[in-house]
Amino acid sequence: MVVAASLSAPRHHFGLRHAVVRRRGSTLLGPVTLALPPVGLTIVLGPNGAGKTTMLRAMHGLDRLSEGEVLSDEPLQAARRKQGFVFQSPIMLRRSVRANLAYPLKLDRVPSGQAAEAVERWAKRTGLTAVIDNPAPSLSGGEKQKLALARALIRKPELVFLDEPCANLDGRSTREIEELLSEAVEDGTRIVMTTHNIAQARRLATDAVFLFQGLIHEQGPADRFFDQPQRPETQGFLKGDLIE
């Protein structure tokens, strides 16, 4: 994947230090320490229940850490303003596609003319122009996911978290989402994404993290991670073995 060499947006350090998430007595994540590279697309891999979603939610401030901290140059609230999150089951506001796209800009008090222009541009970019005035909840799964991604990207965030954005999508929708992600990375957006799809991970990742039983077992640049995995769990997972 090509990553823009020079990016105009200021880059902030971001990650987790000794982060632990516990719920009802059981540890869902951690302790994990992770520093995100300043650019690129990080793929988080791991079996079900490994803590992938929990880690993304904790980094974005949706889930509270039981221990440790989110590493950021700014307070979490301010950092979140420069982030987006796309959920595995896309959450649609009960409004039109247009109103869904416009909502983040409305929150940012972007002038309506400017917002309308951005909405049209993103609808075109995501192929949603034909359904722009349709109710968002009536869209197909692929369209909903594209809308959720466009809504996250319309603010030009520095960092976007995606929780299995292509789960349950067909090949065509997956390819469209992947193209949008590649364009976003080229535009300078930092992406952290979970997936079960190893082929997709190979196609998109600039670096990868392998989570297993709530702990980071391996992480590194994509080439090394996929070609020379060091840990037996990672090797087994990448080969398609069932690991528990």
């Binding site: 401030g61 959920f87 959450i91 506001l93």
Partner: peptide, 18 residues
């Protein structure tokens, strides 16, 4: 809406309005 509105940094007033 909870996760989405928190993720979008909607203020309490914006959340109620939405």
């Amino acid at each position: 809406y909870h996760d989405l509105l928190i993720s979008l940094n909607a203020s309490k007033r914006d959340r109620i309005a939405a």
